[in-house]
Amino acid sequence: MQATTFAVVITSYNYRDFVLEAVESALSQTRKAAQVIVVDDGSTDGSDILLRERYGADERVTLISSVNGGQLSAFQHGVNAARADVVSFLDSDDCWGPEYLARLGELYDVRADIDFVFSDLQLFDQQNRVMRFHDRAVDLGYTAISTYVLTQWYGAPTSALSMRMSWALQVLDLPGSFQRTWRLSADNCLVFGCSVLGAHKYYLPTGCVRYRIHGKNGWWSNQSPRIEYVNKMTSSALIRHYAARVGMGPECIEFTKLEFMTKPQPPWSETKRYARLVMMRRISPWRKWERALNILRRGWRLRG
Rank of each mutant, 00 (worst) to 15 (best):
P267R: 06
E53S: 10
L277H: 13
G97Y: 05
W220Q: 12
V79A: 11
V67G: 03
T234C: 13
M163T: 01
A26Y: 02
P205F: 10
Y229S: 12
T158L: 15
Y15N: 13
D139I: 13
M165Y: 03
G69Y: 08
V61E: 15
V191C: 08
Q126Y: 11
R287M: 12
L258R: 00
V86R: 04
G56K: 03
R183C: 01
E99T: 09
Q127K: 15
Y108S: 03
L63H: 02
F192N: 01
P157F: 04
G207L: 08
S162F: 05
V278Q: 08
A156M: 15
D45E: 14
I213A: 13
M233H: 10
S159P: 15
A33T: 06
V191S: 02
L20F: 11
R210V: 03
L161T: 04
V61Q: 15
L104C: 01
W219F: 09
E290L: 02
S146R: 08
I114H: 10
L123C: 15
G70P: 04
A7R: 01
C208T: 02
K216M: 03
P266V: 05
D113L: 14
N217F: 07
W167P: 09
P175N: 04
K216P: 11
M280S: 13
D109V: 11
N222L: 02
A74F: 11
A244R: 15
S66H: 01
S235W: 10
G176E: 02
V196C: 01
R281F: 10
S65Q: 05
D187I: 01
Q223D: 09
A74Y: 12
G207C: 10
Q265I: 05
T11E: 03
E21L: 14
Y274M: 03
C194S: 15
R281M: 15
S166T: 13
W220M: 11
Y242H: 10
A168Y: 04
V138G: 00
N128H: 14
Y211D: 14
T158F: 13
G218V: 00
G70N: 09
Y100F: 10
T262M: 00
T271I: 08
I49Y: 03
Y15D: 14
S177T: 12
R212G: 08
N294M: 03
G42Y: 13
A26M: 12
V278L: 11
S236M: 15
D93R: 01
R245F: 04
S12W: 00
G155R: 06
D45W: 14
Y229Q: 13
Q127W: 13
Q29S: 09
L72W: 09
W219L: 07
